[in-house]
Write a protein that binds this DNA or RNA. Structure first.
Lengths: 351, 351
DNA sequence: CGAGAGAGTGTAAGCGCTTGCAAGATTACG
DNA sequence: CGTAATCTTGCAAGCGCTTACACTCTCTCG
């Protein structure tokens, strides 16, 4: 079932069918109607691969993310996709699960499909890949990694600023013992977040007691990390999570162990995903405008009148603090030990 | 940058380059090495569109879902993708947001890309589309809709069975006033779930008092629905949600209004998404084996030795009840009204 | 009424890759 | 050392579609 079949049936040339289907050039209305009818009758669907090959235009964007499960990435994807559709573009997603090797093959897959723009929103990144993409003509957007080049737009979040707001806030509430929960400490951007936490903590209170643990991204990882902290002997009054997704698991674990949040321990997240407002207590977090990021990506990758197509610029986004219910003044004494299953123990006056 | 450039550089024909790249036919080792080096030096990436066109094999699967945000769909996708990768396939996702029109265009997009298999995991579905796909040669898997045909595999969940287990359980706990929260009641599969609830409720207790409300899929929708119920005057002792994703919002709203779960109201979900175990109280729900579904899809769409490729069979999956913390014996009296600052009125004795 | 201007359509040359076929190069053997 | 068998490789025909260019009509005007 191809163009030629349709052409034959409509008694025209393939060129005319193509023109009708793409709405280009002038075609007599009666002819066009005949073609459309033939298409209908034959249930013809144009072969997009061939179209791409011949036309040279893919009208397809690629987006690579580290963890589709984390709503943070999904939100960006959805915004971008909506923008893309509005402009007649498709977007292909690839998920790396934070595996650098997958990033490489995903990039090549996208390149192979000849996407007309590529967004790389990941935490793992090899410099060689950045260089490779920089040498391409392809409009590319990097989130959180790399540097601006002629064809590369860079979107960065001022993570330090966000973390600073969190720590300042927590410090102001009297917290002096904090734990930081992260994931994939071997990946530079993530390790950097941890370092930032440590530096800022030291800056705000030289005698601040801190500890850091890492687990997998997601609620399960958060839960495990919380467990690890709780059984380590260290008793933080605040747990700072690298993102909301992990914080959800932390909240759960604290609840399960009968530790009050924020009474005994305050918890913070990062990103401000939708879920943050739906857990109890609702998460205090740093807001990262994911929609804005999605729009920025679209703007950079989709050519258009008022677009900064492949502008090679650099955008810095500043997170804002969102205070909800999971944080409060630090308790005077150390938080109580977990109380055993059977008895829910004495009530503490949290302060 | 194309095959010819590489061929020229390696001083061979394009045919040879192609053979090397695809590992087919016999090529002298020294030649192959030369080709590989040329590829490397030129940073050549094969054009997959052209490859597909010429080869006729796309090794790409398509998957269309209603709501990628709902972990239920995402889990299926991830399992399928893992299986696909293992077999050298890619999978393209499309998201419809429950809009029938988007389903149609997504299907055509997939058809246009000449996927070698298509999974349609949605709740909206036009009979005409089913017919159209049935007429194709393409291996297709439908979830929850349509009937088996030669090229179509059908996966269905025995929703009634799952709902029955929930209602039976709730009924056994003494619940006699229930509310059902759903979404998209205009879509048949979803409306059917509601009907099933109603029928089963009537069956278990002819005098059961019920009410149903609908909102958007997701926590926000769940929250709105819960609000609607609470302000309606009807005082259920149990709220049955069409899925876990919405239940999350319900839990939040009840908590916010000071209503104890499961003390005052029991809440159930459906699907058993990971999040169900991470909210507090953890959700009682019906487990749907999403991994199994993902594997089944892969089995049906990817040709292989022990695969039932395009077997046109029908699989019925039975959900199992998972009891967690969100359900308990129905309270004797009506649940207390929300206790709020502004004093939200008198206590009603329901029934 | 003839020429120029469009309008409508067809012809054919690719787009980059795969692959059947056949020729040229090697190797094996008697 | 000749010949057949086996390897390697190149040739060239598409895959289905877009598009520059050319051609045929039909009008419009002077």
């Amino acid at each position: 079932m191809n163009l030629e079949d349709v052409a034959k049936r409509a008694k025209v040339s393939t060129a005319t069918v193509s023109r009708v289907l793409n709405n280009v050039g002038r075609v007599r209305h009666s002819t066009s109607a005949r073609v459309l009818q033939a298409v209908e009758e034959l249930k013809y669907t144009p072969n997009l691969n061939a179209r791409m090959l011949a036309g040279g235009q893919s009208r397809t964007l690629g987006m690579i993310v580290s963890n589709l499960e984390n709503p943070f990435f999904l939100d960006i994807f959805r915004t971008l996709e909506a923008d893309a559709h509005r402009r007649g573009y498709e977007v292909l997603v690839a998920n790396t699960d934070y595996r650098p090797q997958y990033l490489v093959s995903s990039v090549h897959l996208m390149l192979g499909r000849r996407v007309s723009g590529l967004a790389v929103v990941v935490s793992e990144m090899k410099p060689s890949l950045i260089r490779e993409l920089a040498e391409t003509q392809l409009p590319v957007v990097f989130y959180d990694v790399g540097t601006a080049r002629p064809n590369i737009t860079n979107i960065k979040v001022d993570y330090r600023k966000g973390m600073q707001r969190i720590i300042e806030y927590l410090h102001g509430l009297g917290h002096r013992r904090m734990a930081f929960i992260g994931h994939h400490p071997t990946l530079e951007p993530l390790n950097n977040r941890k370092r930032t936490f440590l530096e800022l903590a030291a800056e705000y209170a030289p005698r601040m007691k801190v500890m850091t643990v890492a687990s997998a991204d997601g609620p399960l990882g958060g839960q495990n990390a919380a467990r690890e902290i709780l059984s380590s002997g260290f008793r933080p009054t605040a747990i700072v999570c690298v993102n909301d997704f992990m914080a959800v698991g932390v909240l759960r674990e604290l609840h399960a162990q009968g530790i009050a949040v924020p009474g005994d321990i305050s918890v913070t997240g990062f990103d401000d995903i939708g879920l943050a407002g739906f857990v109890s207590p609702a998460l205090t977090t740093a807001h990262i405008p994911r929609e804005e990021i999605g729009h920025l990506i679209g703007e950079a990758l989709i050519p258009g009148p008022r677009s900064r197509h492949a502008a090679g610029r650099e955008v810095l986004i500043e997170p804002s603090l969102v205070v909800r219910e999971s944080t409060a003044r630090a308790p005077r004494a150390a938080p109580r030990r977990r109380k055993v299953a059977a008895s829910r123990a004495r009530t503490r006056s949290g302060r």
